[in-house]
């Protein structure tokens, strides 16, 4: 098994350990992004380049940014600029930055060298994934679409603020 796999796996486990042991949610999110990038490199090593890109775009991009926006939204009442300064001291981001740089170097090494995967890993092309997705799995794709629709409706319904009673006769009526 490659050294690239072991480096990426070590970074993933290390970053995940920092996620579950940290008390500040922003620092935990920073390390979780590093962990997801490391898992993306592992997926790339295992011959699934399209899945690695999807992992970076959807997990490390969309979902993590959603959670970060949410956490920032909850802290609206506090002095946000001081908080931001406290969140982004160099001591905090220097270790995730170094881990990201290691991952980037590894990724560049893998792409430039362009060799066959080690052992008996078989590369599955994105074309085969697409053929399977829209061939035998077409029902599952449609069900996933319905699931996403249900997620949107559920999030809208749950996240809505309670409406105030607008009728003037009901205003001083205790519920």
């Amino acid at each position: 098994m490659d050294a690239t796999f072991f480096i990426a796996a070590g970074i993933a486990v290390l970053a995940t350990l920092r996620v579950i042991t940290s008390y500040n949610i922003m620092h935990a999110l920073l390390y979780l992004v590093v962990s997801l990038l490391a898992v993306a490199v592992v997926i790339y090593v295992y011959g699934a380049p399209f899945m690695a890109v999807l992992e970076i775009i959807i997990y490390a991009g969309a979902i993590m940014v959603l959670i970060i926006f949410f956490v920032m939204m909850l802290n609206l009442g506090l002095e946000t600029s001081e908080h931001e300064k406290a969140w982004l001291r160099p001591r905090i981001w220097i270790i995730p930055g170094i881990l990201c740089l290691i991952l980037l170097g590894e990724m560049l090494f893998l792409i430039i060298q362009n060799r066959q995967p080690a052992g008996n890993i078989q590369v599955v092309e994105p074309k085969a994934v697409g053929m399977a997705l829209f061939g035998p799995y077409i029902i599952a794709v449609e069900l996933t679409g319905i699931l996403l629709m249900a997620g949107i409706v559920g999030a809208y319904h749950l996240g809505r603020q309670q409406k105030k009673i607008s009728h003037r006769f009901l205003e001083n009526f205790e519920l």
Binding site: A48, I58, I63, A140, T144, G151, G154, A155
Partner: peptide
């Protein structure tokens, strides 16, 4: 390719789960 198809379904499910969970 079956495992990678399942990975895409897990991604979509995680996105839906996070939105409902955050709400």
């Amino acid at each position: 390719a079956d495992g990678q198809v399942m990975f895409m379904f897990i991604l979509a499910m995680a996105a839906a789960e996070v939105s409902v969970g955050l709400a």
